[in-house]
């Protein structure tokens, strides 16, 4: 239970960086922290105490493996979501670089004041 709560504190720090900071790269880092927190939360839900990874090895019995393996479904979803997070990070970084090139600053308020 405390693990869930600590994970959610991480999410809240991400939201704080997204809302209250003016620097665009700080906002991007806030989104990255939120993404870490959500991925970790999904894996925490699927964890089983004294479990094994969902990969069968040769010296393992299938019946005990089924009883002790952790949940493979959230792991599969998070695996794709990490790579997609990298794609969206590249998209956000390219938008930030374009804005810097156009306005000469990373400050959101300044950008809003200049053309908004």
């Amino acid at each position: 239970m405390t693990l869930y709560f600590l994970d959610f504190v991480l999410f809240a720090i991400g939201i704080y960086a997204l809302v209250a900071k003016r620097h665009i790269v700080k906002k991007i880092l806030g989104v990255a922290i939120m993404e870490y927190s959500v991925n970790l939360f999904l894996i925490l839900i699927g964890f089983k105490k004294a479990g094994v990874a969902p990969i069968l090895t040769k010296d393992m019995d299938l019946v005990t493996f089924i009883k002790t393996a952790v949940d493979p479904l959230p792991q599969a979803l998070v695996l794709t979501s990490i790579v997609i997070g990298l794609g969206t990070l590249a998209l956000m970084v390219s938008i930030a670089i374009r804005l810097y090139e156009r306005y000469g600053t990373f400050d959101m308020h300044e950008i809003n004041r200049l053309r908004g």
Partner: peptide, 13 residues
């Protein structure tokens, strides 16, 4: 995909 996006970012830089 990722290599192409890195090339584009490098050129822009």
């Amino acid at each position: 995909c990722l290599y192409a996006i890195f090339l584009a970012l490098a050129i822009l830089q």
